[in-house]
Every structure is written in structure tokens, then in C-alpha cells.
Write a protein that binds this DNA or RNA. Structure first.
Length: 497
RNA sequence: GCCCCCAUCGUCUAGAGGCCUAGGACGCCACCCUUUCAAGGUGGAGAUCAGGGGUUCGAAUCCCCUUGGGGGUACCA
């Protein structure tokens, strides 16, 4: 049974990997892996004008990065083509579409259409003026052989139109149950091959799904109204229908279909901001699906084990970045040390190139910091805000923030100087958090200060910021020399009394 | 305009006639912890299940209507 289950994701390389594509790919992948079926990746690159190799790479790399692997797919970016139904890119399958079109033409299930763009545009305008839904008027549907020959002789280019038969098309959608659509509302006979000979999406998708033995078509809800066209084509081509499942759409926060204008849609942007694959996959899976339990942090394998198309929601789901960030934090806390260090390093390198830090720590140094930074970074990129002061030569201290709210300049100078003296008494061996804290606590008590005030002054003096990991751990990470030097520099910046 | 689809806290959702005075999570608020920021813990506010009709002994769950929202209406995919 499972051998018969074949699903696919068919991205079009006309833009970077979109969140919606990634989510659809994920659901196909989850369905295939759960059932032990086969997941196919096919590139729909017939929109030659907009397709690029760079987008192909971005899409495949992005899916790969997410952990969504395919069993059959095209050769792109170093990967080699694999699978018994190659090629897996439509521009390489042109002969198949030509053959299928020829068959439909021969059986009069389709016909050549000589209407010019201007004629079609005029038809449309007239329909609009009469408040009628746009549909092909059928000018070329009943041409006699002589009339066709005359047009050919005139050198008029012909597109190929598929004859839409009257009646109702229905299917049992795996997520929305029974759907019925009257073919009258399809807009008339539709074009399957352009006048320049290149095939159109509705046609190629059916020919390919047929050729590749696709058993379940799992795609976005925006395709529901296209499905009747595909069913008609499957019928005309004499192929048994695959099962259809239409997933709810991912919506902008305002409830409209997700768009670049209102949301961040490129997966690459989320990666660049330090979201990790575990969180993204977990989040996407729960947009429109839930295991029906109260679990909410699940790994890819756990999701595969629980996945069920029947539990997919029918209504669209709004994208909630706050929830994604929470999940990202959850997963960052679950990563093991070496793994987290490996993922953090590229962000520090990027920060160095961007001039946010002056140097990048060694893996060992970074690993030693993990206990104090890990629960403070919601994204990998946040490491720069949280601990960037450790790798910055000049803090660019603002004397104004150096002085605690309850303190004046004089007290701050006094406090920092006293703290500096106490800290200087430590050597490299006693430079440990447990050793540094007691003397400063005593100092606070002797002077009748609040610990928070002194600690905040030291914090700002040594890090340049008011939110940092625990102070004494921070001073240890900074090291004795730099701590003392920064305190000196800070004291020097405070105007003398 | 026309066609199709959808409808539970602000958001993601549990719920498949009695277990629901509707559960969880994010976010929010308070408290605890605490040197800051987080993380964590505890508690709280938050949904008359869009509204109205039915069906039923009984409806968030089934049916109908209304309203609201979304998607589609290409020689794009």
C-alpha cells in the first residue's frame, strides 16, 4: 500500500523559497513519511521569463535546511537527479506535454484557438461592461477544417484550448470533505498550450502527476477552484484520479493571504535572523494542524509519527511571529552545546563583518558562555545583543546611563572606584564568580548602598548595556584585565565632582 | 459581479450530541525567584462556541438562513 503512496511538492523557481511553499512541502513530506510513501520534488519552470537558477538553488537549499528531504527530484546545486521518473523539471519534459496535447487534439478534446490577445481583451471588456463573469466566448470552438486552414494560411499562431464539458465535477477532499463545482463556472474552454508552444500550469501539472504516479495531491486552498480543471484533464487523458487534499492558507496577521508586502515570506530571511529549523518546522506543522493532544513542542520525527491529514484545519491560520519566537527559544534551549556553538558562530562572524563586534570567539570560549546566555536568546542572532560587548573593543559608553537612577555622579565615581579596588585585589586564580561577589556585597553593606545600584553601575561600566547575563559571570567572561580597564575607562568618563 | 470555501479566547488550537459552569499554548497582567535581562514556577484576566432559526430529552458539535472573513476568477504558478 505504502508503495503506492506518492506525493510531491512542485515549486516554481520564480522567487525565493516562500513560507507557504515550505509549509506545503512539509505537509506532503509528513504525509509521505508517516505512511511510508514516496516524496517527489518537481520543478515547475515553464514560466521561463521569471524562472532563475538562483531561485532553484534557494528553494532546494531551503527545504533541505529545514530537514525536508525528497526521494526523487531534479539535479540542482550539486545534487544529482534521482528517481525513476526523471527528468524532474518541466522544461525537460516538453515532449510529454506535446504528446498529450496531440492526443487531446486528435480526439477533439481540445482545439486550436487563433484568437489574438486583443480579441480576448475586447471580449473581457465587454463582459465586464455587461457585468458578466469573464469567460472564453468560444469563437474558435467550432471552426471547420476549412476555417482553420484559412487561419493557418494567414500565419496566425494557435494556442490549444481544452473543451470544458458541461456538468458538475465533484471530489472528496481529504481535508474539506465533498466539494462540488459546476464546470460552467470555470470560465469556458481554457488554454493548455500557449501560442508559442509552451504548456501552461494546469496542463503540465496533470500530465506530470499522471506520469509520475502521484497518488495524493496535497496543496494550498488557493487551488480548490483549479481542481475541477485538473479533474477534467485527468479524465480526458484517461488516468485514474489522485486523491486531493487542500490545506488551509497561511494568512498575514490581518487575515489576508500571506504576502511579501505584509509579512516576511522568504524562509531565507528567517534563517538569517537566527530561527532554527526545529522551531520553524514545529511552528509550520502547527499552523493548520494539531496532534489533538496538549503537546506543543514536538520534533520532526514526533510530528511525523502523529501526522494525520484528517486533523488538518479547514480555515486559514494567521502567522504569529511571537509564538514562533517562543518556540525558537524552546528549541534553542534543547540543543546540545556543540550543536548550539556551531549554529551560533556564523552569526558572530556575520556580526563581525557588519562591524557589530571586533572579533569572533573560539568555539571553546563560546561553549563556556552557553550556561549564561542560552536562556536569554530567543534567536541565534540575539547572541550579538546579549553578549556582543565581550568581543567589542570600544563600548562607546554613554556617561548618562552609567549613573544609576538613585545615584549621583559622585556616588557612582566613588562606587566604581571602590569596586575597582576590591576587584583588583583578586588574582587570576580567584577570578571566579563566587570569589568576586562577597567583597562587593560587603562594600555595599558598609556604605549603606543598594546592591542593585552598585551592580548596575559596574554592569554598565563593563558592558555598556543595562541588560546582560548575571554580572559576576559576565566579569569572569570578560577577564580580570579587561574588567579593570573598562572600569578605569568608565570612571574617567564621569565628570569630576 | 460571479463561483467556491471557511467561522471556538487578541493569536494558534482541543472539542467528532451528554465528560464543557468550553481545555491547552502564545501573548497580556500579578506574584514568587532575583544584581539587570531572561528562563522557570504559581495564579489571573480573556470565548453567552459570529447571529438567528430548527432537529433532539439534550448542541460548540447535525440542518437551514443571515452576517462576517478568505480564496479563485490569466496564453502566471
Amino acid at each position: 500500500m505504502a508503495d503506492d503512496i506518492r506525493v510531491r511538492i512542485a515549486p516554481s523557481p520564480t522567487g525565493p523559497l516562500h513560507i507557504g511553499t515550505a509549509r506545503t512541502a512539509l505537509f506532503n513530506f509528513l504525509f509521505a513519511r508517516h505512511a511510508g510513501g514516496t516524496f517527489v520534488l518537481r520543478l515547475e519552470d515553464t514560466d521561463v521569463a521569471r524562472s532563475t537558477e538562483a531561485y532553484e538553488k534557494d528553494i532546494l537549499d531551503g527545504l533541505h535546511w529545514l530537514g525536508i528531504s525528497w526521494d526523487e527530484g531534479p539535479g540542482v546545486a550539486g545534487r544529482s537527479e534521482a528517481g525513476p521518473y526523471a527528468p524532474y523539471r518541466q522544461m525537460a519534459r516538453l515532449p510529454d506535454y506535446a504528446a498529450a496535447a496531440a492526443t487531446l487534439l486528435a480526439e477533439d478534446r481540445a482545439y486550436p484557438c487563433y484568437c489574438s490577445p486583443d480579441e480576448l481583451e475586447a471580449d473581457r471588456r465587454e463582459q465586464e461592461a455587461n457585468k458578466l463573469p469573464p469567460r472564453y466566448v468560444g469563437r474558435c470552438a467550432t471552426l471547420t477544417p476549412e476555417e482553420r486552414a484559412a487561419r493557418e494560411a494567414d500565419g496566425r499562431p494557435a494556442a490549444v484550448r481544452f473543451r470544458v464539458r458541461p456538468g458538475v465535477v465533484a471530489w472528496d477532499d481529504l481535508v474539506r470533505d465533498r466539494v462540488e463545482i459546476d464546470t460552467f463556472n470555470l470560465g469556458g474552454d481554457f488554454v493548455i498550450v500557449r501560442a508559442d508552444g509552451t504548456p501552461l500550469y494546469h496542463f503540465t501539472v496533470v500530465v506530470d502527476d499522471m506520469a509520475m504516479g502521484i497518488s495524493h495531491v496535497i496543496r494550498g486552498e488557493d487551488h480548490v477552484s483549479n481542481t475541477p480543471k485538473h479533474i477534467l484533464l485527468f479524465d480526458a487523458l484517461g488516468y485514474p484520479l489522485p486523491a486531493f487534499a487542500h490545506l488551509p492558507l497561511i494568512l498575514n496577521p490581518d487575515g489576508t493571504k500571506m504576502s511579501k508586502r505584509k509579512s516576511q515570506t522568504a524562509v531565507a530571511d528567517y534563517i538569517a535572523q537566527g530561527f532554527i529549523r526545529e522551531a520553524l518546522v514545529n511552528y509550520f506543522a502547527f499552523l493548520g494542524w494539531s496532534p489533538g493532544t496538549e503537546e506543543d513542542v514536538l520534533s520532526l520525527d514526533e510530528i511525523i509519527a502523529r501526522f494525520d491529514l484528517g486533523k488538518v484545519q479547514k480555515g486559514g491560520a494567521r502567522f504569529d511571529r511571537e509564538r514562533l519566537e517562543w518556540l525558537n527559544g524552546q528549541w534553542i534551549r534543547r540543543l546540545d552545546d556543540d550543536d548550539l556553538v556551531d549554529r551560533l558562530l556564523p552569526f558572530l562572524e556575520a556580526a563581525r563583518i557588519a562591524g557589530q563586534v571586533d572579533h569572533v570567539p573560539s568555539p571553546d570560549e563560546l561553549r563556556s558562555l552557553l550556561p549564561i546566555v542560552r536562556e536569554r536568546i530567543p534567536t541565534l542572532a540575539a547572541i550579538v545583543d546579549m553578549a556582543g560587548f565581550l568581543w567589542r573593543d570600544d563600548l562607546g559608553l554613554d556617561p548618562a546611563v552609567l549613573v544609576p537612577k538613585r545615584w549621583g555622579t559622585a556616588t557612582t565615581r566613588d562606587g566604581l572606584a571602590a569596586a575597582r579596588a576590591l576587584l583588583a585585589a583578586h588574582d587570576g586564580v580567584t577570578w571566579e564568580a563566587e570569589e568576586l561577589e562577597p567583597p562587593l556585597r560587603s562594600l555595599v553593606e558598609d556604605r549603606g548602598w543598594k546592591a542593585g545600584d552598585l551592580f548596575m553601575a559596574i554592569r554598565v561600566a563593563t558592558t555598556g548595556q543595562t541588560a546582560t547575563p548575571p554580572l559576576f559571570d559576565t566579569l569572569v567572561a570578560l577577564g580580570r584585565e579587561r574588567t579593570l580597564a573598562r572600569l578605569d575607562a568608565a570612571i574617567a568618563r564621569l565628570p569630576a565632582a
